[in-house]
Amino acid sequence: EPLWIRPDAPSRCTWQLGRPASESPHHHTAPAKSPKILPDILKKIGDTPMVRINKIGKKFGLKCELLAKCEFFNAGGSVKDRISLRMIEDAERDGTLKPGDTIIEPTSGNTGIGLALAAAVRGYRCIIVMPEKMSSEKVDVLRALGAEIVRTPTNARFDSPESHVGVAWRLKNEIPNSHILDQYRNASNPLAHYDTTADEILQQCDGKLDMLVASVGTGGTITGIARKLKEKCPGCRIIGVDPEGSILAEPEELNQTEQTTYEVEGIGYDFIPTVLDRTVVDKWFKSNDEEAFTFARMLIAQEGLLCGGSAGSTVAVAVKAAQELQEGQRCVVILPDSVRNYMTKFLSDRWMLQKGFLKEEDLTEKKPWWWHLRVQELGLSAPLTVLPTITCGHTIEILREKGFDQAPVVDEAGVILGMVTLGNMLSSLLAGKVQPSDQVGKVIYKQFKQIRLTDTLGRLSHILEMDHFALVVHEQIQYHSTGKSSQRQMVFGVVTAIDLLNFVAAQERDQK
């Protein structure tokens, strides 16, 4: 057995438009009618409502009807409940999964919650491996369901041993009777949507819809739904939504950006999952974080739909894509998950301010006199920076000697690579993860907040409520011999709460 199987392995699926269902090699399930009293909570997966979006479509000038398939009504709160249950049931049916076995899954959280929910009911041990950027709410729900959680670096490539995929496979090879159901490759993922989600949409719309818009992560949702719609409703256009920084969209030119990270969760990847059939997507749109969270908040405030950030991405694209539809036509959007997962993220004004998705003037509360002053007023001194090749031991000596707790790590040209902190280095040394002679590049981390000289002290204040420091950066445009230009970030300084307090105190003292 291989040590790991690539999540982007070539698909062996034989589905073709027009091929009889009787030739399918898979076990198919028909939607079942729910009894009045459910035998367990797993029976509350599927049969989610279709809700008309009344205000947002009109606000953006849509002539067509805009409908939302509300997947956050599933038992675990997301569309991923469907595939989690289906993968477990299919693994039980073919004898792969037996009582007492362990389920391991690399996930952005929602599939993990679905699997942990099913594992709690069915009696399996469950280990979820997820990147650090995923919300604390997801972690809390997983723990409450009895799952064990392993976190991995957000910026690790999918084929790196440190990625959530790599760590999951390492655990599988170490733990007896453990299984990775593997949402990236498992046919049960798109089949769950082909058999149930798509049929529900067709039934709820009486077979009449002209466009379907869905955000894409593993691709199982859009693949399964689109294949069924292509068979039953061939005139329906399928629109895929991919965040900026991901590479799922086609044509490839759409993916060209210097951005590699994004805040919206559960969609987009740096590889093409095996289950994603991009041939059934008629057109791709890219979405960005700001519009995703703005539209998610709009869905909550104006439509009462308590959905997550990827739902915002989907609707932001839908109001663009559906401009081509006329009166009497219908566009369906998939709202994948609930706001429950993001209470401390985009639902929080403070978080939105820190990330730059909300401006101070958007909030009406009274601010102190210094709130709208610029960061450049602080008069920061030149920063202490270190090269990635310097040793951890030497870096600790320098920081202690100069009285700093942290320093930016830059390359020879001064471009920011990340940050090192005294606390992080000492804990890594004590844990045996690094040696004093190791290069400081081994303990770089990139989960820090950046701020510009033109940003306000109010925004800085919000950042420092949650973080010990902020890195002050400025952009530099560099022209190359080819005539092309590129933008790079340079370090201007490091600012802490002490710097802000000293500035405010000094100004008030001078005024007296």
Rank of each mutant, 00 (worst) to 15 (best):
L457S: 02
Q302V: 08
Q447D: 13
L429I: 12
I300R: 02
D282V: 10
T261F: 15
K402L: 11
D411Q: 02
L305H: 02
V281G: 04
D455F: 05
L335G: 02
N255R: 06
E252M: 11
R488D: 05
F295G: 08
G312L: 02
D510I: 02
D270S: 06
V409D: 04
I239T: 08
E265H: 07
Y479V: 11
S427E: 04
F492I: 14
T496R: 02
I272A: 04
G240F: 02
V386L: 12
A470F: 04
Q476P: 13
G414L: 09
D411L: 09
L387E: 14
T421C: 08
Q507L: 08
P336G: 02
E377H: 06
R330F: 02
T385P: 02
L347R: 02
V332F: 02
Y479G: 15
L457F: 10
K320S: 11
K345D: 02
S313T: 12
V473G: 11
G308V: 02
E324N: 15
G245S: 07
S348Y: 04
K366Y: 15
D510G: 02
N288R: 13
L387D: 10
H480W: 07
N255Y: 07
G356V: 04
L373W: 02
C307P: 07
E361S: 12
G414R: 14
Y479S: 12
G356D: 04
D510K: 11
R488E: 14
D349P: 07
F285R: 07
G441D: 12
S246C: 07
R330D: 14
T391A: 06
T421K: 14
K320W: 02
V440W: 06
Q447N: 12
Q259N: 07
K345T: 07
K320C: 08
M466Y: 11
V386Y: 10
V495W: 10
L254I: 04
T279F: 09
F503I: 02
A505R: 05
A407G: 13
D337P: 12
L471A: 06
A470G: 07
I334F: 12
A431N: 15
L363E: 08
D405A: 13
H480N: 09
K345Y: 02
F503T: 14
T456R: 09
E360M: 11
K366S: 10
R278N: 06
T294D: 05
K283I: 07
G423S: 08
F492W: 12
V495F: 13
H474F: 10
L457E: 02
F295K: 05
K345W: 02
I396R: 02
I390F: 02
V420A: 10
K359F: 08
E253C: 07
Q511G: 14
T482P: 12
I272F: 02
V440F: 07
I390N: 12
G423I: 02
D282L: 07
F469V: 09
K355H: 14
L384E: 02
K286I: 02
E412V: 11
V472F: 09
K355C: 04
V434S: 02
L276H: 12
D455T: 12
H462Q: 12
I416Y: 11
K283H: 02
T279N: 10
A431V: 12
L417E: 08
R340D: 07
L325D: 02
G268V: 02
E265F: 02
G266F: 06
T294P: 06
R297Q: 06
N288Y: 14
W284L: 02
T395V: 11
L358V: 09
F404V: 09
E465G: 13
T391Y: 02
R488S: 15
N424T: 02
E263H: 09
E253I: 12
K433C: 13
F295T: 13
G403I: 08
R278D: 02
L276G: 06
L335T: 02
Q406D: 02
D405G: 06
G268S: 02
E263C: 08
E361I: 09
S461D: 06
Q329P: 02
A470D: 05
T482I: 09
A506Y: 08
L363D: 09
E361P: 02
I238V: 13
Q439P: 08
S428K: 06
W351S: 06
L460F: 14
F293H: 06
D337H: 02
L363V: 09
R330L: 02
L306A: 02
F346H: 02
R297G: 04
V319W: 02
L347W: 06
S246A: 15
G423Y: 02
S461F: 12
L358R: 07
V332I: 10
